[in-house]
Amino acid sequence: MPRAQARAMRFQPANDNRGKRVASTHLHAALRHFAEHGLAAADHARQQALSAADAGDRQSFEWWLEICRALDRRMASRIDLPVQAGG
């Protein structure tokens, strides 16, 4: 890759959100969760969502699913449909 093209590329954002926005309340909660749990934050949020689903707590499930989605959209997408289909 030419040096000029490489320099131009470093200013382009790279994420997996693909234009989808996260509500600011979920984003702030996800950032606090990340500060507390570090790189394991998304998995921890996933576990919380699954525990809430097992307990039948739909509101907590949706909250933790959104936190997980803000941290790792792919991980959240793997739990989103199967759990919701059962509920």
Rank of each mutant, 00 (worst) to 15 (best):
L71S: 02
E66Q: 10
L31T: 02
G19S: 10
H28A: 13
M75T: 12
A40T: 10
Q47V: 13
L27A: 11
S24T: 15
V22C: 04
Q47I: 11
R21W: 05
H37F: 13
I67P: 01
R18V: 13
E62H: 07
G19C: 05
D57R: 08
T25V: 14
H33W: 12
A41F: 00
A40H: 03
D16R: 05
L65R: 03
M75I: 11
R46A: 13
R46V: 12
A41N: 03
H33K: 10
F11P: 08
S24G: 01
H37L: 08
C68I: 01
D54W: 06
H26P: 02
R58S: 09
R73S: 10
V22Q: 02
R69V: 08
N17T: 12
L39N: 12
D16E: 12
I67V: 15
I67C: 01
Q48D: 09
A70E: 04
D57V: 04
K20G: 07
L71A: 00
W64G: 02
W64Y: 14
Q48E: 15
F34K: 08
V22F: 06
S51C: 10
H26D: 10
H44A: 14
H26G: 00
F11E: 14
H26S: 14
A52K: 03
Q48I: 03
R21K: 11
A49E: 01
R46D: 04
G19W: 01
Q59W: 04
R73D: 06
E66D: 12
E66A: 09
R73C: 03
A52T: 04
R21P: 01
A55T: 06
A70N: 00
H26I: 01
G19Q: 03
R69C: 03
F11R: 14
N15Y: 07
D16S: 11
L65I: 00
L31H: 07
L39G: 09
W63M: 12
A53G: 03
L71I: 04
F61V: 01
N17Y: 09
F34R: 13
F11L: 10
A55N: 13
N15D: 15
N17R: 15
D72P: 05
A23M: 13
F11C: 09
H28D: 11
A49D: 03
L65Q: 06
W63V: 11
H44W: 03
Q47C: 06
A40M: 10
Q47G: 06
A30M: 06
A30Y: 02
N15H: 11
Q47H: 05
A70G: 03
H44T: 15
F61G: 02
M75F: 00
H28K: 11
Q59E: 15
G38E: 05
A42Q: 01
D57I: 06
A55D: 15
A42R: 02
A14W: 09
A29I: 02
H37Q: 08
L71C: 00
L27P: 01
A70I: 11
E36I: 08
D43G: 12
G38F: 03
G56F: 00
H37I: 01
D16P: 04
A40D: 13
R74I: 07
M75V: 04
A29G: 07
H37S: 02
R46W: 02
N17L: 15
E66P: 05
D72M: 01
A35Y: 07
A41T: 07
A14V: 14
A23E: 14
